[in-house]
Amino acid sequence: MDNHNETEGRLKTTGAASLAELHATKEYILPDERMHHPVAVIECIEAIPCNPCETACPVHAITVGSEITNLPVIDIETCTGCGLCVAACPGLAIYLKQKNYTKDLSFIAFPFEYLPLPEAGQTINMVNRYGQVVCEGTVIKVVTIKRFNRTAIIHASYPVEQYEHVVNMQRLAID
């Protein structure tokens, strides 16, 4: 019954939310194939006092409201996929996704605060919420602008079959 090698589990026992837990919240919205550009996906399902995602959004697509423990709600029709919220989130709980970046590839732009950083064109191991490598991906670009305050945003493509499972990449220096 050890929970360390589960691939599905609960946020409060395995550390990562399961898809079932995420799907049970109305705030987790995964854009489907009808969306033609990347939009923000927010995995913030606990009522913590925090709202930088709301204040960072230039088009007011994210709403927390006056009670800052409210869960952030995104309007994916308004979201332009600029990525400012991805770097603004202190919990690193936001990424951008697009299901059909190409016919076979999905797109993700995720926050990354480890060294070394990958480079454009590099093949990387994509991981799921449990840190397991589920497929390879290709880095499209690495954004490290000052406004992101030392949180790099990695843009990458990966097989569409793993669209929902992939959330980040494996660190490059693991020994």
Binding site: L11, K12, T14, G15, A16, A17, E43, C44, I45, E46, I48, C89, P90, G91, L92, A93, V127, N128, R129, Y130, G131, V167, N168
Partner: peptide
């Protein structure tokens, strides 16, 4: 959860 999630992934 956001902290445990980034350590877990």
């Amino acid at each position: 959860g956001v902290h445990t999630a980034k350590v877990r992934r």
